[in-house]
Design a protein around this nucleic acid. Structure first.
Lengths: 339, 339
DNA sequence: CTGAAAGCGCTTACAG
DNA sequence: CTGAAAGCGCTTACAG
């Protein structure tokens, strides 16, 4: 039917071993032969059958992206797909393909991972943080299967992972506020037990302190993440004898409550109260006023995870546990340099 | 190294042909033999090497999802990923895997499609409407490669596609308005040349007419999609001697302009003016008031596309050109039955 | 109902 | 620098 390596060998007048070596860029082939083989390939429009290549080489040039995929996941968690696009970009540059595997419909934990590992249908596994658990960790570790987890697993292990440094993003927030001239800045976060919120707060406070400004406890508000609670915590802060000059909100949802509390007090943003938040959310664009945001480039996180996977594949012994963060300030109308 | 079909054959005391037949559910094997083979498989924890299976069968059990993937695609076009999740769901139920291929970084149009087709790395191609063009169409058609396009291509062809019936969604909007008791309903859409807007308008008007209500031209507003224009078109409509009782907005972005125009006139939603729009957008949830929406279940569109692909694979001659739409009314606070 | 044998299209030691 | 041969682990006519 379709043209095979034998047809090319015949056309070029060489053996199929030689054609294979040309295809795989062996350096021992004479330039003249390489030339002949290429001419034959062109003439016959030959493309290697990847199924045969995979089988002979014992590898697939395919990586699995393991995550939870349900109706509406795309709306609720667009970040996960942005990460995926970054992963895809790097892998595709390195001639690897990316296959999706869904853990949300498993019959038992680890079902899909065992399938991937035992069926030898891919060379490595990139796992979104939301899909990792101990069962999966053990399967991977026992099999010695190449993997990268996106997001620090919540349990101790010698898994390979990449994660975002949220404290660093908090420092960026502090740096921006100081650069604008705001020195009395409050922080509205989630519960103290929320990992990301706590990290951002820590980084923010450290960043302020490094620049000579200590943030007192009265300037820190912890909420249960609800609109109502955020509104009331913010209102309390604004009615103190000396209200803060600026507020860092730990996320966009909190920002909605904070903005309303500020507006209801007839205060102007940013002239009376400046506001900064983290992460571009799907609805960031219609928040009024347009907020200044410390955004984490999660696409880049995906790109990094892809590179790590390529390195793992070349050097399976490699233990990777790394923080990779690219924070970006997106300047909105809710902060402005004091003149 | 790992356990092969030969090991299983030895363990079970049969030939590897027999093991293969059991694996492939041939009906000619005696129950006793099937039993023995299964026992051996269990004992050895055997899983077929999918690379070998693919090669021997001349198929991959893999489908490619072709689309544009860039940084921020996930935020700008979450619908595309929701469709993808639907496709993945169906394929995975049928033991097919889904591999992502990106057309946005091609060196020349059709590059990725040729690769997919000639490398025989997948059994079929599902193409998101945004990625289809004539080059790709010709490659697919010439190769006779199994494919489903999601979205009616803009050019004439005998490609297989599935698409959404937007006129039907328009009819749903009309039905909902009438059910609430609103009979004098305006429609605010995009330019007349916008396909989706025109279809929705057509369906809406037909739906109203079917129920005995003719919508006059003065109740139709076409905009250039900008906030400003939408605001002014709406304002004009509201200042007519008899303003409409309800407004159907062709999308959420238009709805933002419409809502502002209504509010600025001190009119109450839905008591003075009821509002309905189409599609759940990422920021639908924070629009105030929460809008009543005719949503298209695009996950279901993906599910349907997946089924179509499975049918195509079983019957390659099948020509599929079908509208598959599952509109859903999401009741918000912007419409309410008149009592 | 079962098995021996050929074949799927490559890669890779190995010999020359 | 090149080629003959074995091998990768299955499937599938075909014969019995």
């Amino acid at each position: 039917m379709s043209v095979t390596i034998n047809d090319v060998a015949n056309e070029a007048g060489v053996s199929k071993s030689t054609v294979s070596k040309v295809l795989n860029h062996w350096t021992t082939i004479s330039p003249a032969t390489v030339e002949k083989v290429h001419a034959a390939i062109e003439k016959l429009h030959y493309t290697p059958n990847s199924r045969a290549v995979n089988f002979a080489k014992g590898a697939t040039s395919n990586i699995v992206y393991l995550t939870n995929l349900e109706k509406d996941t795309a709306y609720r968690n667009p970040h996960m797909f942005d990460i995926m696009c970054g992963v895809h970009h790097t892998l595709s540059e390195n001639n690897y393909s990316l296959t999706l595997v869904n853990t949300s419909e498993e019959h038992y934990p680890g079902e899909k991972v065992s399938e991937v590992i035992t069926s030898r249908s891919s060379d490595g596994l990139i796992i979104h943080g939301s899909a990792i658990n101990k069962e999966i960790a053990n399967l991977i570790l026992d099999a010695g299967f190449p993997h990268i987890i996106i997001g620090h697993p919540s349990f101790e292990s010698c898994l390979c992972w990449v994660d975002t440094n949220h404290a660093l993003a908090g420092e960026y927030a502090a740096a921006h506020m100081i650069a604008c001239g705001y020195t009395d800045v409050a922080f509205i976060g989630e519960r103290k037990t929320d990992y990301i919120s706590a990290q951002r707060q820590k980084g923010f406070m450290a960043g302020m302190l490094d620049r000579g400004f200590h943030i007192p406890a009265a300037r820190i508000g912890n909420t249960d993440s609800s609109w109502q609670h955020t509104y009331s915590v913010t209102s309390d802060m604004l009615t103190q004898p000396v209200p803060p000059r600026a507020i860092v909100c730990e996320n966009n949802t909190l920002a909605l409550g904070v903005i309303q509390a500020v507006k209801d007090r007839q205060l102007s943003i940013p002239d009376d109260i400046a506001i900064l938040t983290f992460d571009v959310y799907p609805y960031s664009s219609i928040i009024d006023p347009q907020l200044t945001i410390v955004d984490i480039n999660v696409y880049d996180t995906g790109v990094q995870a892809g590179s790590m996977m390529i390195r793992k594949l070349q050097n399976p012994e490699l233990l990777i546990q790394s923080y990779t963060t690219l924070p970006v300030i997106i300047q909105g109308e809710s902060t402005r340099p004091l003149t």
